[in-house]
Design a protein around this nucleic acid. Structure first.
Lengths: 133, 133
DNA sequence: TTGGGAACGAACAAAAATGTATGTCAAAAC
DNA sequence: GTTTTGACATACATTTTTGTTCGTTCCCAA
């Protein structure tokens, strides 16, 4: 989120791919470690910063802040500040964010099925090196 | 893919989240810059290494190799080597990989719709800093 | 006997993502 | 006047991902 080099091949590839394929664009918006989880938590009802922090295992405040800011920038969530002291801030899904919901429900099913079939071992198992025909 | 530090908070978080939520597990498998694109290219029919390389804008051979290896490890694609000279290798989706297809078709729609609505400007626009109530 | 193409592997370098520690702000409670 | 609280900001360190360059192998064809 901070310092980037806009001219790196890395950045350029990202932009190219993102403009050329909707899926990649989508992944850009919801990718990363925490975003889908945050959206998921907000799926049912609006939550405040501290609630999210407490419900997301191990997230640091910095990460939460960054992700929320990006999600807001990309119009997936809406942020509301209440002028109280100490401040209270609430987050909720936008319509665009809600539109994702059926998709990650399917993805959830697929992911669970995959895990049940292949187990955690899949993460370390090596593929056959040669299966010639 | 190469040297990791299995004990870092980073790695641990990844593992924790992945085991606790199917969506995160799924994102683990199809995330990254190229994987969904590769799956997409293989969606219609099996392709060989060089075809993929030529059809993916700007991908390096190394990246393609790495991604293919991981996809194979995770049972999303199947690799077949023909004992010819020079070697010919073909890749195709497994059933698990195919099962993803409806999902990324929805994701594609969502991504396109998002881009049309918010445009490329979304990537640089800043959210309102304060919208007190 | 050199040269070629296909599909990689290895060493290295750059960039991006993630995590840690500490500081800020306002006003109200003590 | 010191402390407390929620929601961050800032500086910095670490880890992971992505990209670059070169080398390798196999046999056959020129």
């Amino acid at each position: 989120m901070s310092k980037r080099k806009e001219t790196s091949t890395n950045s350029l590839n990202k932009a190219i791919l993102s403009s050329f394929c909707g899926v990649v664009h989508a992944l850009d918006l919801i990718g990363g470690r925490w975003k889908l989880l945050i959206l998921y938590k907000l799926g049912t009802n609006r939550k405040r910063f501290s609630e999210l922090r407490d419900q997301l295992p191990n997230i640091s405040e910095r990460m939460l802040t960054l992700q929320l800011k990006e999600l807001q920038r990309d119009h997936l969530i809406k942020r509301t500040v209440y002028a109280e002291v100490p401040a209270r801030v609430e987050y909720e899904l936008t319509d665009t964010g809600m539109a994702l919901s059926p998709i990650w429900q399917d993805l959830e099913k697929w992911g669970e099925a995959h895990r049940k079939t292949f187990g955690a071992a899949a993460a370390t198992a090596q593929p056959d090196r040669l299966n010639a025909v």
